[in-house]
Amino acid sequence: MIIEVIAIRVEDVEIAAASGADRIELVTGIAEGGLTPSVGLVEAAVKASSLPVNVMVRPHSQSFCYSESDMTIMLRDIEVIRAAGAAGIVIGSLDVDGDIHIGQLERFIRTAEGLDITFHRAFDEVQDKQTALHVLAQYPQISRVLTAGGTLPALQSTESIRALQETSHGLAIKIMGGYGLNGDNVSDFLRATGVPEVHFGSGVRHNGSFLEGIASERIARIRTILNGAS
């Protein structure tokens, strides 16, 4: 069972690594849902521990529809992220109809050659998630989809996530559940969905707030719960 933790500072990476996390999602602008961090932060995060660091590639929070200017920036960011030694990227792109933007996705994939790829919660704005999952699964470079099953917290969308998880069994792609998960609800969430990976943000921080640091005991508790569930 994989625990992914959002980091916004180098200290987050160090604490998460020491507490039982398996992977880092590195972002900045968390109040806007996560934006691309600086190259300095990416380089420092990669050096801070042996955990794989997957870096958000998102130039703004206006939407998941990107202009050609946005694309130029995002593709360059991917090149810089790879050069900094990150393990992967976290991306997502939708067209004007709210479906996966296949053309932009393929450009991301080509530029990210050799990097692990997570398709982020842009997926949750797609109406037909089953079709979208099959589209993403056509690309072996995409390892997983991060989803809450919709726009509500993940624990309120377990039926949708369970359906996606069952579909993923026949596909070369994983489902990672996230949004609103913590040590108090993760056990129920896993029983309801069966996902192999879980994603934590404010739920592993002091007072459940991104204004405060990661609480090592919260990650350790989740690790213990997941070890017992495996």
Rank of each mutant, 00 (worst) to 15 (best):
D97G: 04
V204M: 05
L190P: 00
A122W: 01
G228Y: 00
S202T: 10
E43H: 04
T158Q: 08
S157N: 15
G178D: 06
M56A: 12
A172Q: 12
I173V: 14
A48W: 05
F123Q: 08
V145R: 00
I219G: 06
S49H: 02
F64N: 02
E68T: 11
C65P: 00
T36F: 06
G201A: 03
V57H: 14
A215P: 01
S49L: 09
A48T: 08
I15S: 03
S160H: 02
R162K: 14
V46R: 04
L115R: 11
G177P: 03
Q130N: 12
H101Q: 10
T151H: 05
S230E: 13
V13I: 13
F64G: 01
E11Q: 14
G180T: 10
E106Y: 02
D124P: 09
V186N: 01
A16M: 10
D12A: 01
L41M: 10
A122V: 05
E32F: 09
F64K: 02
F210D: 02
H60Y: 05
V27R: 03
V55Y: 04
M176G: 04
D22V: 04
I222E: 07
G228I: 00
A112M: 13
E4D: 06
L115M: 15
G34K: 07
G40D: 10
I219C: 07
N54P: 01
A21D: 06
D116H: 15
A17W: 03
S168F: 08
M56N: 11
V5F: 04
L26H: 12
V42N: 05
Q156Y: 10
G178Q: 07
I78H: 05
Q165H: 14
L35Y: 13
Q127M: 08
F119Y: 15
E212F: 00
S50N: 12
D99N: 15
Q127E: 10
E159H: 11
D116A: 12
A18K: 15
M1E: 06
A7V: 09
S38L: 01
T193L: 10
V27D: 00
S69E: 15
D77W: 06
S143Q: 14
V135Q: 13
T131W: 05
H101A: 14
D128Y: 09
I100T: 07
I222A: 05
I91A: 13
S168R: 11
I214C: 01
T131A: 15
E125F: 13
A86H: 13
E197Y: 12
R223I: 09
R205L: 08
V135R: 08
V5P: 07
G203I: 07
A137V: 11
I225Q: 14
T72E: 14
P37I: 10
A132I: 06
I142H: 06
L75I: 15
I2D: 15
P196K: 05
E166D: 15
V204E: 03
I6A: 07
I142R: 11
D124A: 04
D188M: 09
I91W: 07
I175N: 09
S230D: 10
L26Y: 07
Q104C: 06
L226H: 12
Q127L: 07
V53F: 05
N185E: 09
H169P: 00
R218F: 00
P37Q: 05
N227I: 01
Q138K: 15
H206S: 05
R9E: 09
V42S: 02
I78C: 08
G34T: 07
M74H: 01
I30F: 04
R205F: 03
L152C: 01
